[in-house]
Design a protein around this nucleic acid. Structure first.
Lengths: 190, 190
DNA sequence: TTTTAAAACTAATATTGTTAGTTTTATTTT
DNA sequence: AAAATAAAACTAACAATATTAGTTTTAAAA
């Protein structure tokens, strides 16, 4: 009934290879030509697996969000309160460090409104909501805080990656300081 | 002695046009072909004004940083303390809202280590340092705080721009909340 | 064994960036 | 005013990319 793919390539292999290119050569080098060359096929053959370059970017964004979520999620087990936020935050920037290209691809989807992309992102938002619940924020303040934490994490990851932080000052210490300050300012700390 | 440009185009006009394309159609649409078409010349002619697409991106980044600095700087005159940080922050995200393409180009320089790019960025960092001096942070804490504020601003601007904030919750209120929380957490508030 | 459909292929086209070399023309110099 | 200079445009040509159309191969399903 539902015919399965031929021997050849499966989507996971393709996305993994695309992720390698992104991390090693930069996300702008993830072209159909480069990807096909690494996979040992011709560029048009890739259209059997996704809908052109926009389709690849879309799938790569989802793939990246899933992997980022996994890292954040695992970091928060068996911790709570401030420690949980700190652990999640360091997992976030660690992922961006280890996979700069995949992380960048995370926000490179052609249509950010796409349902599957939204869903992959929503899991991360939900995790952030959960980890901030220990701070007992009421009403809109909870939503403001989630936006704040996400802003810090994304901004920090990008600025670190793009060489925005020039001072010779430990990056992890900076992140810890910033997160602690933000949580302190939110109040009602556990 | 120093021969001036012909009648034709000067760099300011070119960068302005490039900025228009970036804001209206997205930064990825800033191609030599598109730019040349808008200017009424042929693509190769652009090489008389900058060194290919990387050169254009470099100049556009500097141009954007200068304009961003101008907005931030003007917002901080005749205010101080928390008010100054808030004013500067809202000026920052306002610029990103009004000029999404130019703002994005700000971090798209081919070589972030480039001296002129660094210098344009350094003015913004210096302004941030100055505006945080009212909080009397000692030693490394001052540097951590600068990194934190920049992370918040960039992260907030990008997530807002890329549709990362889905809740129907006022964006400016979120920014105010986040900045206030961060400043409170830093302590010694004026 | 036959049928089917995925997954590869070849061939061709449009767009873009880029280089090389040429021409035009405003400005400077004589 | 005439000549020289150099910026700034041009044409022509090429390489790389994404993409479409149509074809062939081949593993899986019937």
């Amino acid at each position: 009934m539902s015919p399965r793919p031929k021997i050849g390539l499966d989507l996971f292999t393709i996305l993994d290879t695309a992720g390698e290119i992104a991390d090693q050569q930069g996300v702008q080098e993830v072209t159909l030509a480069q990807l096909a060359k690494r996979l040992g096929i011709r560029p048009p053959s890739l259209y059997n697996h996704f809908d052109g370059l926009p389709g690849l970017r879309r799938k790569l964004a989802i793939h990246g969000l899933d992997r980022l979520y996994k890292g954040m999620s695992e970091a928060t087990i068996r911790v709570s309160g401030t420690d949980a936020v700190l652990a999640m935050s360091h997992a976030y920037v660690s992922f961006a460090r280890e996979h700069p290209g995949i992380y960048e691809a995370t926000l490179l989807a052609p249509d950010p409104e796409d349902e599957d992309v939204q869903q992959a992102g929503a899991r991360i938002v939900d995790l952030t909501v959960r980890v901030l619940q220990a701070f007992h924020l009421e009403g809109d303040r909870a939503l403001h805080a989630v936006r704040g934490l996400r802003s810090i994490l994304h901004g920090f990851a990008v600025l670190e990656q793009k060489g925005g932080f020039r001072m010779s000052l430990d990056l992890d210490e900076s992140l810890t300081f910033v997160i602690r300050a933000f949580l302190t300012g939110i109040g009602d700390n556990p």
